[in-house]
C-alpha cells in the first residue's frame, strides 16, 4: 500500500502503536513541537473514545544548536530521564529533523542498560505517512517477541488504536473466535504491558487488522513460523469465510460455527428488511473493497440512484456481522429521519 501524504506523519502512526503499551515510555527524538502536536492529537482522540489516559511521550527537545552540532547528546539525556521513571521499555521514534542531520540513534540507544530500548526509525515525514509509522512500530516492537510452541490461540496484529470502534471490533472478533472455541492470546498492540509482547510468536495464528499490514504478517511468519489471515472479517460472506479460514488454520472445524453465524446473519437481514428495494446513493472512500458493497446491494436489492437517499459507508468499514448490524441500524435511522 502506498501511503498518502495526506494521511499525516509516521510519528502519529507509530505513536498510535507504542503509546498502547501501558508501561512503556515513547521518546520522540525531535523538536518539542512533534511531541506537543502528537500528544494533543492522541489525547483528543482518546478523549473522544471516552478514555482519559495520557500518552507517555517525552521529547529530546532538539533546537537549532542540536541541529548544527548533532542531537545525540540530547537524546542521551532524555533517555537517562526516561530511565528514572523505571519504564518497562523505552521506544525511540525519530523525527524528520533527526533523520535529516543523520544522528546515530541506534548507537546511542545501544548504550542504555537496564530496560529494553527499541529504536523505531520513523524519520518523521521522511519515512512516509501514518501507515508506514504503524508498520515500522509493529516491526520494531516484534523484536521483543520470544516465540514458543504454537498453543492453539491467536494473536491480533495491528488493531487500529485510534478508531472509534476499536473495542467493538475486538469484541466481535473475540465472539467469532469463541464460536470456534479459540481464544485471543495477545493483542499486538493494544492496551498491553511490555512483558506481554514476549508472547508474540507463540500463537498458532496471527490475524492482521487489515491487508496493508501484510509485510508485518510476512515478517512474523518468517521469524516465528506463525501463519496469518490478512484481515479482520468484512461483510456477511467475508465473516463466514473468516470462520472457515480460522477453523482450517487451527483444525478446529468450523461447520457448526458457520451455521450458527449464518442464522444470526439471516436474523439481521430480516431485522433490516425495511431497507429492501430502496433507492440509495452510497458515499464511500476510494479504497472500499468492491465485494463488500456489491454484497449489500444484492442482499437488500438496493437501487443505486444519483438522487437516492444518501447513505455513508464508514471508513474503516465495519468488522464482522455485528459491525454490519450497527451500520445497518444507522442506515435505518437515516431512512426514518
Amino acid at each position: 500500500m502506498i501511503s498518502s501524504r495526506t494521511e499525516g506523519c509516521t510519528l502519529t502512526g507509530a505513536l498510535s502503536v507504542t503509546t498502547s503499551v501501558q508501561d512503556a515510555i515513547t521518546v520522540i527524538h525531535g523538536p518539542d513541537g512533534c511531541a506537543h502536536h502528537n500528544f494533543s492529537l492522541l489525547h483528543a482522540l482518546h478523549f473522544d473514545n471516552d478514555q482519559l489516559n495520557l500518552p507517555s511521550i517525552l521529547s529530546s527537545s532538539l533546537k537549532e544548536q542540536e541541529i548544527i552540532f548533532g542531537g545525540e547528546f540530547a537524546l542521551e539525556e532524555t533517555l537517562s530521564g526516561a530511565m528514572g521513571e523505571s519504564p518497562g521499555a523505552i521506544f525511540v521514534l525519530t523525527s524528520c529533523v533527526a533523520a535529516a542531520i543523520g544522528d546515530d540513534v541506534r548507537a546511542v540507544c545501544n548504550e542504555i542498560r537496564g530496560c529494553p530500548v527499541v529504536v523505531i526509525p520513523t524519520g518523521g515525514f521522511l519515512g512516509g505517512g501514518f501507515s508506514d509509522g504503524v508498520r515500522s512500530a509493529l516491526i520494531a516492537l516484534s523484536e521483543l517477541g520470544k516465540g514458543g510452541d504454537p498453543n492453539g490461540t491467536v494473536t491480533l496484529v495491528g488493531e487500529k488504536n485510534l478508531e472509534y470502534e476499536a473495542e467493538a471490533n475486538y469484541r466481535e472478533v473475540q465472539r467469532l473466535l469463541g464460536l470456534l472455541g479459540v481464544k485471543v492470546r495477545l493483542r499486538f498492540v493494544r492496551n498491553i504491558a511490555v512483558s506481554e509482547i514476549a508472547q508474540l510468536g507463540s500463537s498458532s495464528l496471527n490475524i492482521l487488522r487489515e491487508e496493508s499490514l501484510a509485510d508485518v504478517g510476512d515478517l512474523l511468519k518468517d521469524r516465528f513460523g506463525t501463519p496469518y489471515l490478512p484481515s479482520f472479517p468484512l461483510g456477511f460472506e467475508g465473516t463466514l469465510t473468516f470462520l472457515s479460514q480460522v477453523g482450517d488454520a487451527l483444525n478446529t472445524g468450523s461447520d457448526r460455527a458457520i451455521s450458527m453465524e449464518l442464522e444470526r446473519q439471516k436474523g439481521i437481514i430480516d431485522q433490516f428488511s425495511e431497507l429492501r428495494g430502496r433507492a440509495v446513493n452510497i458515499c464511500h472512500s476510494d479504497h472500499m473493497p468492491a465485494p463488500f458493497l456489491s454484497e449489500l446491494l444484492e442482499l437488500f436489492d438496493l437501487q443505486v440512484k444519483e438522487r437516492g437517499q444518501i447513505l455513508t459507508l464508514p471508513d474503516p468499514i465495519p468488522v464482522g456481522t455485528s459491525g454490519l448490524s450497527r451500520m445497518l441500524s444507522r442506515w435505518q435511522r437515516v431512512l426514518h429521519a
Binding site: E64, E66, I67, I68, F69, G70, G71, E72, A100, I101, G102, D103
Partner: peptide
C-alpha cells in the same frame, strides 16, 4: 560548526 560526521554544518 560541528565535529566531522555529526549534525548539520550547512545549518
Amino acid at each position: 560548526g560541528p565535529e566531522p560526521g555529526v549534525g548539520c554544518a550547512g545549518r
